[in-house]
Amino acid sequence: MKTALKIRSQMLAGWKVALAYKFDFLVQLITNPISVIVYYFLWKAIYAYTGLDVISGYTFQQLIDYFVFSLIVGMIVYSDIDNWMEHNVVHGNVIQFFLKPISYLAEKIWFEVGLKFLDIVIVALPLIMIAITVFGTKLATSLPMTLLSFLMLILAVIIGFMMTYLTGLIAFWLIRIHGLRRMKRAFLLFLSGGIIPLTFFPSWYQQLSHFLPFEYMRFVPINAYMGRYSITATGFDNVFIVLGMQILWVVVLYLIAKFVEMQAFKKFSGAGA
C-alpha cells in the first residue's frame, strides 16, 4: 500500500513530464506510421519481383503485420531512460534522486512507465486502427496465445529497460554517453528484429540468437502474438521454452544491473558527489 503511493507518485511525474511536451507527441503520431508505409511499398515490390508467396517464412500480409506490430512493440519496449540518466549526471543533479525515499532503480522504472503511458494511448492505439483499416492487419484470434504474448511483451519491456538502465549507469563513469546510447539503439533495433524479422538472418545467427537477450525484446513476443509458437512443438518453437528464456534473461539482467548499480553508486558517493 505504501509502496503503491510512491509508485503512483513516480508514474504521475513521468506522465506529467510527457504531457509538458505535447507537441513532440503530435509529431510522433504523424511520423511513426510513415515507416510502415515505406516498408509496405518496398516489400510489395520485392514480393512482386521474386514472384514468391512466402519469403523466409512470411507471406506479404504477414510481413506487413509484423512491421505494424514491430513498430508498436518497439515503441513500448524502447526506453529513453539512459538519456535521462546521462542528463542527471552531466548536470550534477543525481543527488536529487538519492534524497528520495525510493530506490534509484524503482524510481527510474516507474517514471518510465508514466512517460510511456502517453505513447501507448496516443500513438499505438491509432496506429492499430490505421493498420486494420488500411493494411488489412488481423488481430490474433486465440485468447490464450494473446494473453501469453501480452505477458511476453511485459517481459520484453523489462529486458529492454534493464539494458537501457545498464547503458545509463555507464554515465557514472564516462559522464557523457551520447555515442554509446546511439550505438545501443542501433544494435537493439537490428538484433531484436526491428528492421527485418530474424528469419532473414543467416541460420547460424538464428541459432545463436536464441541464447542472446535481443530477440526476446521484439521478435519473440510478436511471433507469439502471430501464433508462430505452439505448446506442443519442441525446442525454440515451443512457447513455454521461449517464455522460460525470457524469464531467465529478466533475472540475469536484473542481477547484472544491480551489481553494476552498486559499483556506480560507490563511484558516485566516493568521488565527492
Partner: peptide, 11 residues
Amino acid sequence: FGQKQQLWWDL
C-alpha cells in the same frame, strides 16, 4: 542544496 536542481524541472 542551493546549487542543485531538486524540483521537477519541466513541471
